[in-house]
Nucleic acid binder design. Sequence first.
DNA 1: ATGGTAGCCTTGCTA
Length: 257
Amino acid sequence: MRIATWNVNSVKARLPLLLQWLETAAPDVLLLQELKCVEDEFPLMEVTGAGYKAVVVGQKSYNGVAILSRTPITVTQRRLPGAPEDEQARYVEADVAGIRIASIYLPNGNPVETEKYPYKLAWMSRLVDHAKSLLAEDIPFVLAGDYNICPTDIDVYDPVGWAGDALCKPESRAQYRRLINLGLTDSIRALNPAPHLYSYWDYQAGRWQRDEGLRIDHLLLSPKAADRLENAGIDRVPRGWERASDHTPAWCSLRDH
DNA sequence: ATGGTAGCCTTGCTA
């Protein structure tokens, strides 16, 4: 089973490219982030026409996550547990083909001197707690999406310039390592140890043309999912298309039982 | 040279 994740930066603006990628790459599951629309505005007919079911957690203008799958989807969470007052549409989780799969849009956290940064760190702490509870269920799971974290300096084109950014600061990386230290596997890094492997390139300053990117989209696997890991990578092609998202799809494939 | 892009339904915010 192949599971992909893609921050599309507006699903309505990106619909032609989304349909093109679904047709050519044909993943079994595609996790989306930054829909930037409410559930009623999600292009369900077009996605259904492409052969996918969809579960959508939307929000006006900002955030928004979805799970697309060729096989039936059973929702298990529509918010990250731990803060009932948190209305932001950044987490949806479901059972798909015997695997618990979450689509995550982790807070960016910039500017770091504002309340956005502690919100990011608190959100990550909630994610660690929830990952612990999933581990206790002893099921295979995949937590994937836009983590807005560069795990190490080799995941950044200019580590010195980015050192003070919320995507790279030590507290952000420490929270990410707490997830890894629970026993989760960064599937892309596990199979692609070389540097200069990016999933995001800023629209500005010719970052894509110069291949000055960041690796911030991750698929983290529970031990039982990691036992089935076959391959993983990043498909750079859609970043080069006309009217591209600033992110490109990342994916992993798991062996069937 | 201290820049630049994209999407939102805004006239600034978020990334």
